[in-house]
Design a binder for these strands. Structure first.
Lengths: 189, 189, 189, 189
DNA sequence: CACTAAACGAGACGGTACGTCCCGTCTTGAA
DNA sequence: TTCAAGACGGGACGTACCGTCTCGTTTAGTG
């Protein structure tokens, strides 16, 4: 029962994602996702033998990957540390705001989120920190500031502001630049 | 259909919480929670007409409140800013580590968490920042540092470290003190 | 999960019977029978926890009972041995000919029948023989003929002619009387 | 789509028969029978385009033929009427008792049988009667007894006793001889 | 002191979705 | 060409819950 057709798997993931975007997680049945993908229910279980649970898990993982891939695409050609962070923050904020699934889920199942106390964020932190490291290495830092610690610090702050901008309007490039300068880099450079 | 018996409502919430702690969210049925509470299924719907959804929502809200209540109990009699943050970090870290439900859910349904991009954290941030404000007002701050901004900054960092301690061992009071001094308060005081 | 409602059970049996009459055994699903009975599929399994298999078995048993009940009604007030057998043969033949389910099954699933080699017939034989016994006891028998053996013999012949009339037209009272006289009772009285 | 390989067809029938003997009709899938025959499922549908239904029907027909062929082999060299009937009854009784499929089906799906009211038996009756006819023609009959009628009568009795021996032990040659003499031939010779 | 009203247990029922099994069709590739 | 291998759509199965409803039984509270 091997998965012969990678493209079909992708189509199923996309279809499931669309269903969640429309109706939320709880109201998305395997049947819904199947017909959205133009596929029989049996095939769903052929590709995801773990059933609904595995399917949802795969969709989350898939979308998580897509999100950071796009984030990477948006910032990878930046030349300075400031530019990376600014563009990253702006893109992430816009992406989150426009993210269909997140917005639907926030409305229909808010209790599923808000669990910032998770351990998953550790991975994400390292991902971001790792990405920022080379930029920090080519940047002049204040005396006594270690690159690794600075990267960790920046990752935490970026992740925090991505989810909760607070008083800053991340759609405004000027404000973002100001935020990066006075809040994020102030203690480092 | 008024809820005559507040104590019974509490018992139901507690029972549901216990079930989730044992079997995870997905594997907890209304029936399970009912018999755990020593109550008929009909009564569940009398107290939570919204059904399973409302019940789960209520449990999350209830446990969220309990968590921060205990956190408050753990730190409210601290006298200095450093002490508040240190005790808060240590308590929160221990509480999360020992939190039955979180640990079960992390094992059985990890995809439900990890959504740090949430908007829920905004509320939590304000809660923490608001709590820290009076301590900051009675603390000597570096020139140019505004209390509101400092509180926001501290709240973000505290929340970040609560979920992902990184290289710090939050069970070790010495390390916590060090973390607070060099990472959290360094740019403020 | 006791069966509280005997009438509902009856309704389900009747509905299932009707479905079989229309579409045959193989093409009758639990769903079909359920909607025919105006009942949900879940209820089907509440009344017949053994599922489709138990349901079909119950229908056969039920209809078997009904058939012989009606046969009994048709002959129980006969006064002579000849009359009992004649009326029984004529009723049974007509009933079989008009029996919706049998005719449908004969057309759609003939391989299900024809298994005359069954052991079930033993019970039926005894049933018929037992019913005929009192009539034989009040009838003058040829010398050396034992009632029990005569009853068994008659039961066998009656059952045989019910299913396969051969050259006799069992719709014609005259022929039936002739059959009974020259074939069935010839060796006995 | 012609059936190129008669031997393969036979193998499939035999394999299917074996499966039914092991697990009953309902629990025998086309897949089971295919792998028992060492054949792919696709081939099953080449040989039996009507699918499972046609396959089962063919197996019944095939086994029906085999049964009467063996019955014929067991009695065809008998010389007297009594011998034919005695040997036939004894063989049939033993064959039925030892018949794997019948015994399995009787245990797992008794409701499939017991339908003695079938029309199929008409054919079988004629078969048996036809076979007995020459023996009757060479036998001295009581006055007024017509061969055709006697053959029909004997066929009915034989078929009846094959399925339901009643008080006779058909494994005992003495009893069988007695049965044939006093019950079957008494009214004829 | 009955009499009523509410809370609650018990459970039948319709309904939805689950995961599984099997059927019958079709395509592909190897002998 | 024949066959094995297997992906796929489709349909039914039996199970598990859900949410609604109706009973009957306490348990109070009131006229």
């Amino acid at each position: 029962m091997a998965i012969a057709n990678e493209e079909l798997r992708e189509r199923i993931l996309h279809a499931t994602y669309d269903c969640i975007a429309r109706w939320g997680v709880a109201r998305t049945s395997v049947e819904d996702a199947a017909s959205e993908a133009g596929v029989s229910r049996a095939t769903m279980y052929r590709y995801f033998p773990g059933g609904r649970e595995q399917l949802l898990h795969a969709v989350v993982e898939w979308e998580y990957g897509r999100f950071f891939q796009r984030l990477y695409d948006a910032v990878h050609d930046a030349s300075t540390l400031e530019e990376v962070i600014e563009r990253g923050l702006r893109y992430a904020h816009r992406a989150i705001a426009e993210h269909e699934v997140l917005q639907v889920v926030l409305k229909t199942e808010p209790e599923l989120l808000g669990v910032t106390l998770s351990g998953e964020s550790a991975t994400t932190l390292e991902l971001i920190a790792g990405f920022l490291t080379p930029y920090l290495e080519h940047h002049e830092l204040r005396d006594g500031v270690v690159v690794a610690e600075a990267a960790d610090y920046l990752a935490r702050m970026v992740l925090s502001y991505m989810g909760a901008p607070g008083r800053w309007d991340l759609d405004d490039p000027v404000q973002v630049a100001e935020l990066v300068r006075v809040e994020l880099l102030a203690g480092i450079v």
